[in-house]
Simulated scan of single mutants.
Amino acid sequence: MREDDLDDEVPEDDDPKCPTIPFKAMEKIRYRRKWRSALIIKVLGQTFPFQAISRRLESIWAKHGAIQVASMSWGFYAVRFMSEMDYVQAADGGPWTIGGHYITVRPWRKGFDPRTVEVARTMVWARFPGLPIEFINR
């Protein structure tokens, strides 16, 4: 059992309009297991239909195994990978785009709340035509 599966707080008093559903530690582990090989993505600057996003991600990321795309709220999507090689390539490769718009990519983490996330950075390509060779370095 992982320690981070036991640290969730359960509210003391239930709001009758929004009841809580308690889970046992072993249930949490079982439910979260499949998401440990997932990334959370968001397309910046444009909204696309779910099917368009799903097809594009399958074409660029599902090279060695299947992926499963799940729509979250606020324009975020969770992408589960059946292949670790595909997961690593998607997480570390890029930058990735859909329809010319950049995709932010972050590892899944428990308790991810799209309402409170600030997109602070993403990988982009920058082109400097005519830049002298001596100024090109990491």
Results as ranks from 00 to 15, higher is better:
9 E>D: 08
9 E>A: 13
12 E>I: 14
12 E>W: 11
13 D>I: 06
14 D>R: 05
14 D>Q: 13
15 D>S: 10
17 K>D: 15
18 C>A: 14
18 C>N: 15
21 I>M: 09
22 P>T: 14
22 P>L: 08
23 F>G: 08
23 F>S: 08
24 K>Y: 08
25 A>T: 15
25 A>N: 14
25 A>D: 15
27 E>F: 14
27 E>I: 12
28 K>T: 15
29 I>S: 11
30 R>A: 14
33 R>W: 15
33 R>I: 01
34 K>F: 04
35 W>L: 12
36 R>S: 10
36 R>Q: 11
36 R>W: 01
36 R>V: 06
37 S>E: 07
38 A>D: 01
38 A>T: 09
39 L>N: 03
39 L>Q: 02
40 I>M: 09
40 I>V: 15
40 I>H: 05
41 I>R: 05
41 I>W: 09
43 V>N: 02
44 L>I: 10
44 L>T: 05
44 L>S: 02
44 L>K: 08
45 G>F: 09
45 G>M: 03
46 Q>R: 14
47 T>I: 13
47 T>F: 12
47 T>Y: 08
47 T>A: 09
49 P>A: 09
50 F>E: 05
51 Q>K: 14
52 A>N: 07
53 I>C: 04
55 R>M: 13
55 R>P: 03
56 R>N: 10
57 L>N: 03
58 E>W: 09
58 E>A: 14
61 W>V: 05
61 W>T: 10
63 K>R: 11
64 H>F: 14
64 H>P: 06
65 G>W: 06
65 G>L: 10
66 A>I: 14
67 I>K: 04
67 I>P: 04
70 A>Q: 13
70 A>N: 12
72 M>H: 08
74 W>F: 09
74 W>H: 13
74 W>R: 08
75 G>P: 01
77 Y>K: 01
78 A>L: 05
79 V>T: 06
79 V>G: 01
80 R>N: 06
80 R>E: 03
80 R>M: 07
81 F>C: 06
81 F>D: 01
82 M>Y: 11
83 S>M: 11
85 M>A: 15
88 V>I: 13
89 Q>D: 13
90 A>G: 03
91 A>Y: 00
91 A>D: 06
92 D>T: 12
93 G>Y: 01
93 G>P: 06
96 W>E: 02
96 W>I: 13
97 T>C: 03
97 T>H: 01
98 I>W: 00
99 G>Y: 05
99 G>D: 05
100 G>L: 04
100 G>T: 02
100 G>R: 04
100 G>Y: 01
101 H>L: 08
102 Y>C: 03
103 I>E: 00
104 T>W: 02
105 V>A: 02
106 R>N: 14
106 R>Y: 01
107 P>S: 10
108 W>E: 01
111 G>V: 05
111 G>D: 02
111 G>I: 00
112 F>V: 07
115 R>M: 10
117 V>L: 09
118 E>V: 09
118 E>M: 12
118 E>T: 13
120 A>Y: 00
121 R>F: 13
122 T>W: 03
122 T>D: 00
122 T>I: 08
123 M>Y: 00
123 M>Q: 04
123 M>R: 05
124 V>M: 03
125 W>E: 09
126 A>W: 10
126 A>T: 12
